[in-house]
């Protein structure tokens, strides 16, 4: 959500930071959608979550706002926004850039996300990975670089689970679509049945080498762009127990 003049600042920042060069860019081999993300407090090595707050405020994407501590005084702020699409995430990234009062913020020189910006010294990092936007700040007395924390979060979002634990982690109960819908070339809603609410909470990563995956309210949408048949894999992610996998069934 921007005000009209926020829009002007955002447009100026887009020009200044070559938005057209990186907008829509994808640094993962497959298309990825992060869905219903949450933090458990286990995600950052060496850091303990002091506060995790999930908010869904009208006009803004669902977000997880968190504060992490290391030792007595070391403190990290992490905001994760789950946008409906990669394109929306890149727009939000520029709005994030518009929160830096200094003009010194620049493209990050580290390999991070699909696009990343940082303060000199890397005490504040803003990056987008797929449809997620993350803003991380070291807010201790003498802030230092925090690329390791940023990379760890990026891996959490972008990596495919190396193994699955189908007995411990609940998978989607149904994950299917009709061939006719997928073949239309238009975004098609996938038929998803969530795990039983009584089971441990999980979030999801959808990977596809054959099309784009977005979210729309409660639905996951797929737009087929490849010559080969549609292929989507949904991973349920448990912060403590691993992952479960479910491939799309095309009917």
């Amino acid at each position: 959500m921007t005000t009209p003049a926020d829009g002007e600042l955002v447009e100026a920042l887009k020009r200044r930071h070559d938005f057209d060069d990186w907008s829509g860019s994808c640094e993962t081999e497959e298309q990825l959608l992060v869905w219903r993300f949450f933090l458990s407090g286990e995600e950052l090595s060496g850091w303990a979550a002091e506060q995790i707050r999930e908010l869904s405020v009208p006009g803004w994407p669902p977000a997880v706002h968190s504060v992490w501590t290391r030792g007595r005084h070391d403190r990290l702020l992490l905001d994760v926004f789950e946008c409906p699409s990669r394109v929306a995430a890149h727009e939000l990234t520029v709005q994030g850039l518009a929160q830096f009062e200094s003009a010194l913020v620049e493209r990050a020189e580290i390999q991070l996300g699909d696009i990343a910006f940082a303060a000199p010294g890397q005490a504040a990092i803003l990056f987008a990975r797929a449809n997620a936007v993350l803003l991380i700040r070291h807010v201790t007395r003498d802030p230092g670089p925090i690329p390791d924390a940023a990379r760890e979060l990026d891996r959490l979002l972008a990596s495919k689970p190396s193994s699955v634990e189908p007995k411990r982690v609940p998978a989607l109960r149904r994950f299917e679509a009709t061939g006719a819908a997928l073949g239309s070339g238009q975004p098609a809603a996938l038929d998803i049945e969530m795990p039983d609410p009584g089971q441990p909470r999980v979030w999801f990563k959808f990977f596809s080498p054959t099309g784009e995956i977005d979210a729309d309210e409660e639905r996951v949408l797929y737009r087929h762009v490849a010559a080969q048949p549609p292929e989507i894999t949904a991973y349920s992610i448990s912060p403590t127990d691993g992952a479960a996998e479910r491939a799309l069934r095309v009917m």
Partner: peptide, 20 residues
């Protein structure tokens, strides 16, 4: 003022974290 983090908003983006 947050000089080391280039004066990035801490309490008021995208909404006001008034509780914090």
């Amino acid at each position: 003022y947050g000089c080391p983090v280039l004066g990035v908003t801490q309490y008021a983006w995208p909404y006001f974290f008034c509780s914090e």
